[in-house]
Amino acid sequence: MSADLTELYQQVILDHNRRPRNRGRLPTANRVAHGDNPSCGDQCSVYLQLEGDRIKDLSFDGSGCAISQASASLMTTQLKGKTAAEAQALYDQFHQIVTTGNAPDEMSDIGAFAGVHTFPARIKCATLGWHAALNALKSDPTTVTTESHND
């Protein structure tokens, strides 16, 4: 297997794909947003239980490739307890990682997605769940459907 592919499908990613964390509809959610990737059909819903400005709990549901599912799963483990501003900052770092391939050492887990940058078509897959989460944070407490994302 090529180095690029080994980089893309890191152990962390395979593990999250096989055993997704926080998957399913969160019963206590008061925010939800849905992300679609119309070109490939990937879908992701993110459920947030927001208390004030803080994400008390969250979950995701959806279908798609290993990269999109693992990314959404890993994201749920990273965003629990974060404020909206912290979540945005974490996404900015994640976006940086998947587009440049440069992952700072302390970003051990989301750094696993650095290999995505050599597969530009897959960046959308990696960011799908994040877009849904950020939209859920911005929305009013009703269901919001987002359309495609172009990065």
Binding site: M1, L5, L8, C40, G41, S63, G64, C65, I67, Q69
Partner: peptide, 21 residues
């Protein structure tokens, strides 16, 4: 195993196949 992962692996084998809806 999702079709997009299949297609990415196939591409490495020189194969052009389609994955999606």
């Amino acid at each position: 195993v999702h079709a997009h992962d299949v297609v990415t692996f196939a591409d490495e084998d020189g194969l052009a196949v389609r994955g999606g809806h």
